[in-house]
Design a protein around this nucleic acid. Structure first.
Length: 828
RNA sequence: GGGGUUGUGGCGGAACUGGUAGACGCGCCAGACUCAAAAUCUGGUUCCCUCGGGAGUGGGAGUUCGAUUCUCCCCGGCCCUACCA
């Protein structure tokens, strides 16, 4: 290591000392820059595979490099895992803590449309700015592994993986109603539609048919739920995922369609229900207006005009309009009936937009007595309501609780479980139905009619159909285009790059056209953690050796907002690669935690429009990176929302200054003795900080450090060991300060390379304890007594207290409860 | 409607498997230093009080010698999701 850099260019520690020994204030500006330079020059955080060491892979969600720069929310996650990574490193682990950029995305493209600046250029600038900001915070990333997803060397593999999906039949093209944003002129995934609005621009989303590439994530739905048992995800992430996948068990039942007299029309309407046991309460059926039978049977309907009109109205409605208004509307399909397969009864059939075409079979059997939506509909259309579950009063509302079956033929008297089994058995025996599991999860719409994304590596040949481009021709790079605007037909800007679009079929050599849609921005982030293992590999996305050594990710932290999208997609993607034999484990992340958002001091989300955004650069400039980091760890419970407070930040800043100034009291003699009390304070701090970092209780870990510093502050002189221990414990939080003071203390190596202190519980233990004395559960005083003192001795001491004697006057002691080292409760 | 999460001083928040509620920090008050201010340092700081005490962790009940912690009911905040049959 270059001693000069360490000693600010001086030849020796002694010479260097002359320059700072009279310094009053902690000059964080120069000191932080100095250490960042040293870490960079010495590649202090670079890691390689080392089979002699246990690995630890810490991961945070890589940012989208927006033009706005780093948000104070980013460092909450980054600092937390930096603290964990640094501690693990000092505990002897080979730690991989990488950073990169999720660089494809709409903002860069929208910016290009506005200004004409190519997304590649603005993205590059933004990445440079983000990198500068991240480096200014002293994170221990291995920068040699940094990459961004819009680099062809990276997306080459994203495209390669898409081809694997295609080859395994999991990528397919389908014409389907998609969410269409008329403002962005882009198809959106369900997940990108927020309350019927476009997630990005807020415009009303409408439905529109479009040929889309789809990824068959639903084929993995069961495994995405079941394999959660193999990993350690915090409860809310786990339950959110399960909820999103939305598994439900029920049955598909066939209802034969007939004319008014009960003559079969030769069509069987399949409905999905989670309660086949309630079929005796079915009084009508409903199909989605888009259901194929509606068109096919149009000629049968006596009120065909009304039906057509309703179908048209529904088609025009946006998602928002369709879901916002829960008043039931619909039209009866006059002229046809459905036959209840259990009872043989003929019941009316309706169409209504409360039945969705995308879930189940797009048709339902309605049980108004026991489903509120059916109940509401039945009230509007004056349909009979037949109770089949006992309990409740159905005169006002549906009874949605369980109850013994009544009016249910062979199921009478049964409970839910028995009746479900009986109903399904009956359906199977009579050949009109079977048990069926359904999911809310839909297949992943993988096409975007956009420019700034990975080109989908497929060509269409009139003779051979869709063909993947040969893998040795990857990457298929984005062509230059004159205009980034999607056209009103919904075609991608790539459609205008005629030369690029027209190509030859890899199979027959004839004329073919390239796919002009690009991938969604979730593509690149679905496997980036694999690339970190071996980022410069140009033969494979990562070598087997690297994947075997580094995977899984041991600890992944990120925002709750990515729980349903990124986290689910990347788990699916990884499972697919696992099935193909490309990665060693079925799950990518061993442990997933989530941090709370940082709100502005007014309790609102930080936003440009509110003008309450805190700029990290200013914080670093005014308080220093260490104070910033430490404050973000101290701000509150890590998993909960926190409000930014510059006053609290100032308190932490004072603490940093205090640690600096305590150095003046440090004994030159390293072997100076410590009192039992000092030893106790030190070991207590070691134990608490170590435990609390592991539990992500960073705020109380910092409290422990503060308590320890308060102890040091009361001492006249501080033994070097006590101060050195403080620096080591502090180093994950405030690495610059720790390095500087470590060097001033005479440390010849980076504190990063030192080992983490080990606490001794025996030394941390008090030998005298304060025991509370209560009478009837009320505090009346305390006694100081030897630890683990004899019960009778404790009782005797407690009774000796003046206050206790006074309170007990005229009362008889019935019982004395002694909790060792804690409490004495006298019951009188 | 469904799911999750949360409610403790003036504020952010501590409190291990039920055992001295308010750690730590902010703010505030007083003192020191200063012509003064900032910065820094020292002490105090849940509320009420007749200075004996009393009340107190959203509200109400319960279990217990003892409840912020466990059980039941009710009220509120925040986040996600939503006509998913």
């Amino acid at each position: 290591m270059s001693q000069n850099a360490r000693y600010n260019g001086k030849a020796s520690w002694e010479e260097w000392r002359q320059t700072w020994q009279n310094e009053e204030r902690y000059n964080f500006r120069t000191i932080e820059k100095k250490w960042q330079q040293i870490w960079q020059d010495e590649k202090a955080y670079k890691v390689e595979i080392d089979h002699n060491k246990e690995k630890f892979y810490a991961l945070v969600e890589f940012p989208y490099p927006s033009g706005a720069g780093l948000h104070v929310g980013h460092p909450r996650s980054y600092t937390a895992l930096d603290v964990i990574a640094r501690k693990k490193r000092m505990q002897g682990f080979n730690v991989l803590y990488p950073m990169g950029f999720d660089a494809f995305g709409l903002p860069a493209e929208n910016y290009a449309i506005k200004t004409g600046v190519h997304p590649a250029i603005s993205t590059k600038e933004n990445i440079a700015n983000f990198t500068r900001q991240l480096k200014s915070l002293g994170f221990s990333f291995d920068w040699d592994r940094c990459f961004n997803t819009c680099d062809p060397e990276y997306y080459k593999w994203t495209q390669w993986m898409f081809i694997q999906f295609y080859k395994h039949g999991l990528a397919y093209k389908d014409k389907m109603a998609i969410n269409w944003c008329p403002s962005c002129k882009v198809g959106l995934a369900n997940e990108e539609v927020v309350n019927g609005h476009c997630e990005r621009c807020g415009a009303d989303v409408v439905r529109r048919d479009k040929e889309q590439w789809m990824l068959a994530i639903t084929k993995y739905a069961d495994r995405l739920i079941n394999d959660l048992d193999q990993v350690d995800f915090i409860d809310r992430v786990r339950s959110t995922q399960i909820n999103w996948i939305g598994r439900s068990e029920g049955a598909e039942l066939e209802f034969e369609l007939t004319d008014n007299s009960g003559n079969s029309l030769g069509k069987k309407m399949v409905v999905y229900t989670t309660r086949p046991d309630t079929t005796f309460g079915v009084t009508y059926c409903v199909m989605a207006p888009e259901h194929q039978f509606v068109g096919e049977l149009m000629g049968m309907f006596e009120n065909a005009d009304d039906v057509r009109q309703y179908v048209n109205e529904t088609a025009k409605k946006s998602e928002l309009q369709r879901t916002a208004d829960t008043t039931k509307t619909g039209v009866e399909l006059k002229g046809i009936k459905a036959r209840n397969p259990y009872t043989g009864a003929l019941i009316p059939v309706f169409i209504s937009d409360y039945v969705l075409t995308g879930y189940g079979t797009g048709a339902i059997m309605a049980v108004p007595a026991h489903d509120q939506r059916d109940y509401d509909f039945a009230k509007v259309f004056h349909l009979p309501i037949v109770q089949v579950l006992a309990g409740g009063d159905i005169s006002e509302a549906a009874w949605e609780e369980d109850g013994t079956h009544i009016n249910s033929g062979f199921m009478d008297g049964m409970d839910k479980k028995e009746a479900m089994a009986a109903a399904i058995k009956y359906a199977e025996e009579h050949g009109f139905g079977h048990a069926k599991v359904n999911f809310k999860l839909r297949d992943w719409v993988f096409s975007r009619q956009r420019y700034w994304g990975e080109p989908i590596p497929m060509v269409y040949c009139e003779h051979c159909g869709w063909q993947p481009i040969p893998e040795d021709q990857l990457p298929l790079t984005l062509p230059e285009v004159p205009d980034y605007r999607p056209n009103d037909n919904g075609d991608s800007p790539l459609a205008n790059a005629t030369e690029w679009v027209n190509t030859t079929c890899p199979k027959c050599g004839g004329h073919a056209r390239r796919e002009t849609d690009v991938m969604p921005n979730w593509a690149g982030s679905s496997w980036y953690f694999l690339r970190y293992c071996d980022p410069h590999n140009d033969k494979e996305f990562a070598s087997k050796e690297a994947l075997d050594y580094w995977m899984n990710v041991d600890w992944y932290n990120g925002g709750m907002e990515h729980t349903t999208l990124h986290l689910l997609y990347s788990r699916f993607w990884h499972k697919f690669l696992y099935d193909c034999g490309y990665v060693p484990q079925p799950e990518p992340y061993q442990k997933r935690t989530s941090h709370g958002m940082i709100l502005a001091s007014d309790g609102e989300k930080m936003s440009k429009s509110r003008g309450n955004v805190v700029n990290p650069d200013e914080i670093v400039e005014n308080y220093g990176a260490d104070s910033f980091r430490l404050y973000e760890m101290f701000i509150g419970p890590f998993d909960q929302v926190a409000m930014w407070s510059e006053e609290s930040l100032n308190g932490v800043y004072r603490f940093v200054g205090k640690v600096y100034s305590l150095f003046k009291k440090v004994y030159a003699d390293k072997d100076a003795p410590m009192s039992d009390e000092d030893l106790r304070a030190m070991h207590k701090c070691i134990i608490e900080v170590t435990e609390r970092i592991d539990q992500m209780k960073f705020n109380t870990a910092v409290s422990s450090l503060m308590t320890y510093v308060n102890h040091l502050a009361t001492m006249k002189m501080i033994p070097a060991q006590m101060y050195a221990t403080l620096l080591k414990l502090l180093s994950p939080f405030t690495p610059h300060l720790a390095e500087e003071m470590w060097a001033r203390l005479g440390g010849k190596t980076l504190i990063v390379t030192e080992s983490w202190p080990v606490g001794d519980a025996k030394l941390a233990a008090e030998n005298e304890v304060t025991v509370a004395v209560q009478i009837n559960g009320k505090m009346r005083g305390t006694i100081n007594i030897a630890k683990d003192a004899d019960k009778t001795e404790v009782e005797a001491e407690a009774l000796k207290l003046d206050n206790v004697a006074r309170q007990l006057e005229g009362k008889t002691v019935k019982k004395i409860i002694v909790v060792p080292n804690r409490i004495v409760n006298i019951v009188a």
